[in-house]
Amino acid sequence: MLFKLLIFPGFLFLLLCAFVFDWVDRRMLARFQGRVGPPWYQPVADFIKLPTKEDTLPQGVNATVAAALPMLALAAVLTASVYVPVAGVVSASFEGDLIVVLFLLSLPALTYFLAGWISVGVYSILGGHRSLLQYFSYEVPFLMAVAGPAVLSGSWSIASIVAYQAQTTWGAVMQPLGFVLAVVGLIGKLKRDPLDIPKAKSEVVSGSLTEFSGRKLALWRLSMNMQTVVGIFLLVNLFFGESRFFDVLPAFPVFGLKALSILLLLATASAIYARLRIDQLADLGWRILAPLALLQILANVGIGG
């Protein structure tokens, strides 16, 4: 159990994945743009560099809260990771763990908003506002899209959804629309290009994190990267569960391949789109994504019911 929590598929494995995914993502984006991209040790170097920098906070900011927020975000992501199986190996599982994971994965958005809220800088406040607005826009379609597989398989446990897919076929094949919506929602959740509205550099400098530096910023960065990993793993489980077509290959590399494919999708999306405006995102979320997600759920009820 302790091995599962700390080494695989727990903390250490996740840390490794966070660095690897960060590097692969940056490298892919660079290649899309005709650049060379950073060397493999760049994410590690970045992570080591940040804690050595001076840790400052503006006057009037509650230091305890400011220090607690990134830790809270990291803790939520790590707790969520406990319930997300990696290649069939899972630390803990029970009926309804999907709901817990979804709840825990929305906690970082809240801490991000609070980080902007407690800060005194105008950019942080604007970034905090934006992150909350963005949360309301992407979260509903994302939840509905992720609920699709659960409706289909008739269970709210990730392990059973994976098992259901093993009997039938990939969730992404049965509900392609739901998969696309889940990816869009994930982009919004991770605040990645093109939905990096709360931290848009040319508009609000660095959003909520403008005033953070040193160790706290390192923790923020780490929690973001781990969130990427956990989010991708969740999508792999829900939409690319173990399928009988790949039974010949060992589960672990296949899982890794699936996860990297989703990362490739995310990187492609950041490469080919410009950042949206917050009102455009709200439009997209409520007028297009949410009805489509509803459609998918209804279809799933039809198939699964």
Binding site: A30, R31, F32, Q33, G34, R35, V36, G37, T268, A271, I272, Y273
Partner: peptide, 14 residues
């Protein structure tokens, strides 16, 4: 932009 991005990817870094 997708086709263009793939073209650049194939051409390698500039």
């Amino acid at each position: 932009l997708l086709p263009q991005v793939w073209r650049v990817l194939r051409a390698g870094p500039l």
